[in-house]
Amino acid sequence: MVSDFETQLNELLERAKNTKSPVNATFGETNINEYNKPSEVWMNDVQIFYENYLKTHALADRIKPLLFHRKYSELVSCLTSISKDRKFIDKMNGIQEVAVPKYLAKGIPQYDVFISHANRDKEDFVEELYQAINKLGINIFYDKDVIDWGDNWKNKILEGTKKSEFAIIVISKNFFDREWTEKELAEFLSRQNRNGQKLILPILHNITLTQLQEQYPSVADIQAIESKKYTCDQIAIMFARQLIKRLKSI
């Protein structure tokens, strides 16, 4: 979401593109006051903008005399520079940098979600689900994208289970009794039980709750959804809501 600060800054720069620089002498039949009026109004608005937002910016000491001497072109140049100052913009948007000690940084999740699934379910469901979540700009551990040529895929997967905020587990008959799907599930169950924080988000894909209870009784008490009842876009939005709730609680 764009803040009032960014909105006003962008509007001032956009207006500057269509405003002629002021002149100091009459020329031809043109009335100089009328000619200079748009640029004068623009500089008045920059003065207000400066008073509201820019007094703490590194260019503040340069902008103040430019406003006093009505240096239009130089003011445009300063505002252009400020529009590229991402650190200051983030500050005005209320986004603060948090210094994290190196010994804690390793514990910060690298991925928003790990999609655990059987390869046989990729074609008819998982790939579409991945694309729907990815469209929302969510950082996903998805084996096809994360594991590169030459990687130790077992180590990569285990690393992903440790560095993901959530795990969407697509549970189907294809998921049952597969060494690595069960290993992933065991890792996530262990983390969830150890941390006491919601982690596992099960999706039942072409199986019933009874089948889940028979195969994985430890997962049966976790609220699940059924793939047949929702589109992939709907599931992606549901996950985004879970992620937002988590971020708000931090």
Rank of each mutant, 00 (worst) to 15 (best):
E165M: 14
N10Q: 11
K183P: 08
G150S: 15
K144T: 10
E159G: 03
I207S: 03
F5A: 01
N44G: 10
E6L: 03
P38R: 01
V113T: 03
K87P: 00
R241N: 07
A99E: 14
A16H: 03
I225H: 05
M43N: 03
K154H: 14
D90L: 10
Q47I: 06
T161H: 01
A99M: 14
I225G: 05
I168W: 02
I138T: 10
A99H: 15
K87E: 15
V98E: 12
T161M: 05
S21K: 09
V46Y: 05
V76I: 15
L199T: 01
K144C: 05
S164T: 07
R120L: 11
A167H: 00
H69F: 11
P65M: 14
E6W: 00
T181H: 04
L67W: 08
E187S: 10
A58W: 11
V126W: 05
S218L: 12
R120V: 11
E159K: 09
I222W: 03
F49N: 10
L199E: 02
E184I: 00
K37Y: 06
I235L: 03
S164A: 13
L189M: 14
T80Y: 07
Q197I: 09
I225C: 06
D90G: 06
K198R: 13
L158C: 01
D143Y: 05
D85T: 10
S77M: 13
E74P: 01
E123I: 09
D45T: 12
R241Q: 05
K245N: 11
I115P: 01
V98H: 13
Q8A: 04
V113Q: 00
P38A: 01
D151K: 12
Y72W: 11
L204N: 09
T208N: 08
I207E: 03
V41C: 07
E29C: 04
K64H: 07
K102I: 13
L185N: 08
L201A: 02
N24H: 06
L212T: 11
G196E: 07
Y35D: 01
P202G: 10
M238A: 11
V41M: 08
K173M: 02
S3Y: 00
M92K: 06
E51D: 12
S77A: 15
L54Q: 03
P202L: 09
T210K: 09
Q192Y: 04
V146Q: 06
K135M: 12
R62M: 14
M238F: 10
A99Y: 15
N206L: 09
I250S: 06
I133V: 13
T7E: 12
V2Y: 04
H69I: 12
L185R: 13
A224K: 06
K245Q: 14
